[in-house]
Design a protein around this nucleic acid. Structure first.
Length: 501
DNA sequence: CGATTTTGACCAGCGC
DNA sequence: GCGCTGGTCAAAATCG
């Protein structure tokens, strides 16, 4: 009497695909409950999601009624007689066709996705290698023995790196006769940035401007100023404190950290509170990571790297948007910028480096180190009232996250160490606190509106403008795009391994 | 018990 | 050469 159709006869297996955070889960067993025994007097609907639903259950309707049970038998007989079974089978055939179409669509989507990824990689390789192959910064001391090529680049050795995680940051190239080079070379043994031909370097970089001509040659540094309550800001990397000093002119101690992701990693940072405003934390990065970075750390490294690239620009060309004060060796990227209606400044002369658009970005020399400072502490409201320039907002960072380019973490650690979740969920960048990129793009999305209950409308608008500006700055940055590429690549790898987001 | 932080000592660069 | 300063080392202390 019963003629059960095994699910496998209808649809074989299930399909699951992930692409860019979008999960198409087709695991629903489409017809598993389809049992002819149970379909008496049922109608079958083919829904948009290709799930067949038995609308009524004869069993449920007929409970406790023998006469109905007899009717059921009759109906079942009718099924056979009327050829309804074959009709149902025909329906199933139709659904099978639909299933095929779906699979075809899925294949097409996958192909499109791969094609997009290839396009992205091509684009990324066209953009970033300009940084990689053109050694970004050469600072030479005029007629001195210490000729140092200071490089800010994605190291060439990464090109063959299968895992495609990026190693970005600042690097130092030292000529053999460099006095300071010998020592630093020992320390940077693992930083095997390839040295470009000297001749090409000379032709490329023979015309440095006066400022950097006068800079004795040490590693470039990137300073980030943020308002932060904690000892350090969480930048996605793992650090170990190795020293502390009271620096001259600042009663606040300066803490020295080294990267501990790899024992041989030469990257250092030091953290110090601003003497004038102790809520302001100044973090200075130096060196190049010689190991794969988590996406979150890559984003941070990319950001500092992009900022450091400004040094290249100031050394290789005269930037009308930059002013130089020779006495202080300080350059401020704000002079000729103008604002658009979003409050974002644009410097038409420096489209490739969005940090030019941040007026509170300065280039200076400190202890003979060329240093670029990203000042993220300014309040745009104040700035707008006093000038047309735009500055990035200065949210007071929470105790757990200060400048976090990583995914939001549920934990609330004050440790400088990266939370493990940052490695596990690399898709969502957050910028300026815990805000994800998605939230940045849709700052008033309903799901997080509860967060903003206490915020005024103007604050929200300001926040949206700020985030839009920051997002624009980030997304127009080749380094950011490289980080994004790493994210996507990582996702694709995960998808290949069957991992789910 | 290993990892991390603290802290005084030490070293190198620089100006005088 | 000397003193000052920034930066690093390394042993001891502390933490988890």
């Amino acid at each position: 009497m019963s003629s059960t159709i095994p699910p496998d006869n209808i649809t074989k297996g299930s399909t699951s695909m992930e692409a860019g955070g979008c999960s198409l889960n087709m695991e629903k067993s489409m017809f598993s409950f389809f049992d002819v025994k149970e379909v008496a007097n049922s109608t079958i609907h083919l829904h948009g999601d290709q799930t067949l639903i038995s609308e009524t259950s004869s069993q449920a309707m007929n409970d406790g009624d023998p006469s109905l049970s007899n009717e059921e038998d009759d109906l079942a007989e009718d099924y056979k007689k009327d050829g309804r079974v074959s009709s149902a089978k025909a329906d199933m055939g139709q659904v099978r066709e639909e299933n095929k179409k779906l699979k075809h669509t899925l294949t097409r989507v996958l192909k499109d996705y791969e094609s997009l990824q290839m396009h992205f990689n091509d684009f990324f390789q066209q953009e970033v290698p300009k940084v990689s192959e053109t050694w970004l910064l050469i600072m030479r001391k005029r007629d001195g023995p210490k000729k140092v090529n200071c490089l800010i680049s994605k190291s060439k050795e990464d090109d063959g790196d299968d895992d495609q995680e990026l190693k970005l940051g600042l690097a130092l190239r030292i000529r053999p006769n460099s006095k300071i080079g010998i020592k630093d070379l020992k320390k940077d043994e693992t930083t095997k940035a390839m040295e470009p031909p000297v001749n090409s370097l000379k032709t490329q970089r023979i015309e440095e401007n006066d400022l950097l001509d006068q800079i004795p040659l040490k590693k470039a540094r990137v300073s980030v100023k943020v308002i932060c309550d904690t000892q350090t800001m969480n930048d996605g990397c793992q650090w170990r404190k190795y020293g502390q000093k009271i620096a001259k002119g600042n009663p606040c101690p300066r803490a020295y950290y080294r990267c501990t992701v790899s024992p041989s990693c030469p990257v250092r940072k030091h953290v110090q509170r601003c003497a004038e405003d102790r809520s302001v934390l100044i973090t200075t990065y130096e060196g190049t990571h010689n190991h794969p970075l988590s996406v979150s750390a890559t984003a941070m490294a990319s950001t500092t790297s992009a900022a450091a690239s400004m040094l290249k620009s100031t050394s290789t060309s005269s930037q009308p948007g930059l002013t130089t004060t020779a006495a202080s060796s300080t350059t401020t990227a704000s002079t000729t910028n103008f604002s658009n209606h979003h409050g974002m400044t644009y410097n038409p002369t420096a489209p490739q480096y969005p940090f030019y658009n941040l007026p509170n970005t300065t280039i200076s020399t400190y202890q003979s180190h060329p240093t670029i400072t990203l000042d993220l502490t300014s309040n745009p409201h104040f700035n707008r009232s006093t000038s047309s320039n735009f500055a990035m907002a200065a949210p007071r960072f929470s105790s757990s996250t200060c400048l976090n380019f990583s995914s939001p973490s549920p934990s609330s650690s004050s440790s400088p160490s990266i939370e493990s979740s940052n490695y596990k969920n690399p898709i969502a960048f957050s910028y300026l606190g815990r805000q994800t990129l998605n939230e940045a793009l849709y700052p008033t999305s309903p799901h997080d509106s509860y967060k903003n209950n206490s915020s005024s409308a103007s604050q929200q608008q300001h926040s949206a403008e700020t985030i839009a500006a920051a997002t624009k700055a980030l997304t127009s940055n080749p380094s950011f795009r490289s980080a994004l590429a790493a994210s996507i690549t990582s996702l694709v790898r995960n998808a290949g391994g069957g991992a789910k987001i």
